[in-house]
Simulated scan of single mutants.
Amino acid sequence: MELAICTDVFSSLSVEDMLDKVKSLGIHAVEMTAGGWGSCAHAPAEKLLHDEKRLEEFRRLFEKKGIEIAALNCSGNQLSPGEMGERHTAGAYETAVLAGRLGVKKLVMMSGLPAGAPTDMTPNWITSTVSWPDYMPECVRYQWEDVAIPWWKKFVEHCEKQGIERIAIEEFPSQLVYNPATLWQLRDAVGPMIGMNMDPSHLIVMGADPIAGLRNLEGAVYHIHGKDARVERGLCDVNGLLETRAVTESSQRSWNYVAVGCGKDLQWWREFFSVARMTGYDGYVSLEMEDLTMSVMAGLETSIEALGQSISR
């Protein structure tokens, strides 16, 4: 395994300055947002695809700096009804074309989340039992069979034409794929191009065990995000793990995203990567810094040190 970094944390820097910053941290691979909700500060698919000279300069800059593109990320909600879904769908298709032009073989995405019915205009994340109320089964059937599976089958065909080999779906809360079971559901319906971007922080905050998740997903983990979370003692005991407060309200939340090693200890992370390697993963681990309890650089340095001591190389 090798360490990469998600570059949105350096969104204020130019591409060249970002690459220099990444190298100064001892990292030689990047994951960049090119569509969806990301800043797209360094790899805006639409702009690069409409300017051949700019695209060629972009490609040469990475060669010059000795930095590899581990993946392009276009995480968004392409299954949303209305303008958002249309915009994120267009961005996903453009990102796939850009990946093909750059020789990048992997996309990192989210599954998307449809509305609960054809006439609804707001995505609906159903987490309660479908046994009651009685409208739940039809909502879930509609989301999967009428929206998600057809969209993904068509998109996979597009990606195959661009030379993309793997699409790593991040198991994010409020998405249709949010755990191993729902990843398998999509993969079984669409095909083996679909795998998981294992982001342990999301399973942690839903009360699951990412290490057990790795074992369940043997052969289907296509990417890993180096990102930690801490379930806050006392607060979670009172209010549970369902949390709607803004991420900036760190002191009041039942859980928070934190620098690697500030949620789970190093022994846990060493076991996590050992099991990842044992079950077949030997790719990039992209550090994603979203800890609001410390400065960006403190979070990066803390995470890099912890990942350096735990990644199975």
Rank of each mutant, 00 (worst) to 15 (best):
E2K: 14
A4Q: 02
T7V: 10
D8K: 03
V9N: 00
V9I: 13
F10Q: 00
F10T: 09
S12Q: 11
S14K: 13
E16P: 07
D20R: 15
K21V: 07
L25S: 00
G26C: 06
V30Y: 02
V30S: 08
M32R: 04
M32F: 05
A34Q: 07
G36I: 04
A45H: 04
E46D: 11
H50Y: 15
R54Y: 13
R54K: 12
E57R: 15
F58W: 04
R60L: 15
E68G: 03
A71P: 00
N77A: 03
S80Q: 10
G82M: 10
E83T: 10
G85F: 03
H88Q: 03
T89R: 07
T89V: 08
A90Y: 00
R101A: 01
G103I: 08
V104K: 08
L107K: 02
V108K: 00
M110G: 07
M110R: 04
P118E: 04
M121I: 11
M121H: 15
V140E: 00
R141L: 02
E145Q: 10
I149R: 09
V156D: 01
E165M: 08
F172K: 12
Y178Q: 07
P180C: 03
P180E: 06
A181F: 14
L183Y: 02
W184P: 02
D188R: 15
V190M: 05
G191I: 06
P200W: 06
H202C: 02
H202W: 11
I204E: 06
G207C: 10
E218Y: 03
V221D: 00
V231C: 05
L235S: 09
D237A: 12
G240S: 13
G240N: 12
T244C: 08
R245D: 05
A246W: 11
V247K: 13
S254C: 13
S254F: 04
N256D: 12
A259P: 04
V260H: 06
C262T: 14
K264S: 10
D265Q: 11
W269T: 07
R270T: 11
M278C: 14
Y281E: 02
D282T: 11
G283M: 06
E290H: 03
L292F: 14
M294P: 02
M294C: 15
M297D: 15
L300A: 01
S303V: 05
A306T: 07
